[in-house]
Design a protein around this nucleic acid. Structure first.
Lengths: 363, 363
DNA sequence: AAGAAACATGTCATCGATGACACATTCGAC
DNA sequence: GTCGAATGTGTCATCGATGACATGTTTCTT
């Protein structure tokens, strides 16, 4: 019987009206001390727990936010963001309905529809797949916040400073004395994003710009042959070969291999490490490697120097923006963009370049 | 106005009663063709979307299940299970409310309380932290399913065959010709689980048993000095040193280092790889390594042979059990245990032992 | 001692969807 | 032509919590 008690049951048991029970529960209005105790006893006896469904209906808010996650399993970045969102939501007494879209437009639309039917108080897109879905949510009058990407449909968003993050990584390498530094990144995502609308930043473009900034800023030449762009999620799934591996292999076959590599994700960097290992080269003795994310980085051999993304904080900030939207509904949405800094974490995969130009080779 | 239309609004616009609209929406009862079309037009015009909150109140089921996740961020295992749960839930038109407990008993209790207040239709524990919380959920009359662990409080559960999984890994090594095989695992979790109650299996104990099975089964001696037990989540967080690293270092300092290692998680195996790398030994030339999980395994250098856990399937099975509980409520709960098989994935980290007993060393 | 202020509690319409029930009409069958 | 079945539609109580409002006590003020 425990959980099925209702307000009415409690009221009956305590010999008062439901209104009085509600007053005790919410601690507002006048309630005589003796009455309060009687009610509290009744609550305890019945094992009463408020029915948030009924409450939601009456109050016209569900204390729930929806989180649409791009959600590639092996990428702990999304898990980190989800955790941050949840923590911040909890702080506001809210729950989180999670939907993995797997980067599928239709799946994403379905998620939005479901969340609308559930009357969530807000929707978070951790990397929306298609702009129309963002619009759909907005058209239902639901506040939206986006992570890592901004659409033509202006919404508050949380992004990181990819350009400066990438630059700091490359400058770290330059500072160690490297001059030939390769870049392994990802090509821009597919066509769903209308090109030319120009209001959303391209994460990968920014990182490449950061690399260029650092190189030119220090008077180093940019060799296009040392820039490898792979599939957006290459190596994140098991089906695809890891493009970090593919490119690194190619780089190492050259007569003039790079002294260091900067990869735009830990997974791509992991692929690079595999290619290096295969050739029996040592990191960082023969070649230095830097990643991005700080997800897999600490677990690689050797532990990877990487650009940390504050995943949890990103999630928290995103949720925070949602609650901000809820409170003063009329704030200028498109202007609330939070840009979080990255942090270079130096570990064992970077060091000065080999002075002798004959890397030890075995394989 | 779009999403705020109610049944009544639609009914008014179509010039019918709400009952008729409901009939059209659910496709039951008699509705004249002409009427149906008028209603459908009104639904489209108003952008009406059913309010699942109101529906939930009336129908006394929320079409939502709660998922309490132990939730160590860097472990994609949990992300995989969560995805599986979500997929299966979606197939039943259900949403998933996610709570990360971070292995904290109090946090977990809070999660259960919240889920009860939300009147979820069922609760999944992906590795419950404290048995009392399972009981709490049950006492509220909510069906519970557990993943990876069973409590004295009998609930349906999904587990994997850890013993056979571990054995298959070790037998793979034995088959390659290894005789001195080290084991790196985790000590049993802390005291929250009442010892001696004896009805729940200890994952780590099972894996150790599997190792012993394989060794004794092939007439190989078990050297306790080659069995390293670390903290349960060692190396999963950044704060702690990776116990796989710590133990492997120790093993390699011995006069008679092992020829191969079996670690009970990819992360621990990753630590082992780091120690091996530090000593400039080669995998698998000098030493073979096997992990468990198949999460990080494909991204290590070299790609790791590992025991795959079917994460997504585990999640699906768990959700499936919940829906089973919902349908025939009176099925014998404790008896529905699903045991899923593991699968050995052979990659580049295992090979025959070095014939010459003088491993190349550089560092 | 009368009226205002504070205290204490109850009544009831409401949030939006549902479905049992009642009522009305049409169609066949005998 | 009459009656039962099939068809079509509306009414309304209900799910559980909420809070505006009404009503009834005390306790101060002056």
């Amino acid at each position: 019987m425990a959980s099925r008690a209702t307000l009415k049951d409690v009221a009956r048991l305590a010999g008062v009206s439901t209104a009085t029970v509600a007053r005790v529960l919410h601690g507002n209005g006048y309630v005589a001390n003796e009455t309060r105790q009687r009610v509290e006893a009744a609550v305890a006896d019945t094992g009463y727990r408020i029915n948030e469904i009924a409450q939601g209906l009456r109050r016209q808010r569900t204390a729930t936010i929806g989180h649409l996650l791009h959600g590639i399993i092996p990428n702990p970045f999304f898990a980190g963001v989800a955790l941050g969102v949840e923590q911040e939501a909890l702080r506001h007494g809210c729950g989180v309905l999670l939907f993995n879209t797997q980067g599928d437009v239709e799946q994403e639309r379905l998620g939005v529809e479901t969340l609308i039917r559930r009357r969530v108080d807000g929707i978070l897109f951790t990397t929306a797949t298609h702009e129309d879905n963002v619009r759909l949510a907005l058209s239902a009058g639901i506040p939206v916040v986006q992570v890592e990407r901004m659409t033509a449909a202006a919404t508050p968003a949380v992004v990181i400073d990819n350009r400066i993050g990438a630059r700091s990584a490359v400058e770290h390498l330059i500072g160690l004395g490297h001059r030939r530094i390769a870049y392994i990144g990802a090509a821009a995502p597919a066509t769903q994003w209308r090109a030319g609308s120009g209001t959303w930043p391209d994460v990968e473009r920014e990182r490449l710009d950061g690399y260029r900034d650092a190189m030119s800023g220090h008077g180093l030449p940019i060799d296009d042959a040392l820039i490898g762009l792979g599939r957006y999620y290459s190596g994140n799934g098991r089906e695809h070969p890891n493009d970090g591996y593919v490119w690194m292999r190619r780089f190492l076959q050259r007569a003039d291999p790079p002294q260091a590599v900067f990869a735009t994700s830990d997974l791509l960097a992991g692929g690079a490490l595999q290619a290096i290992y295969e050739r029996s080269l040592r990191v960082p003795d023969d070649i230095s490697v830097v990643g991005f994310d700080d997800t897999y980085a600490p677990y690689f051999a050797p532990p990877l120097t990487t650009v940390e993304q504050p995943m949890v904080e990103i999630g928290q900030a995103a949720a925070h923006l949602i609650f901000q939207s809820l409170n003063d509904a009329e704030a200028p949405a498109g202007e609330r963009i939070v840009k979080l800094p990255t942090r270079l974490v130096v570990r064992a995969s970077t060091g000065p370049p080999a002075t002798v130009r004959a890397p030890s080779r075995r394989g």
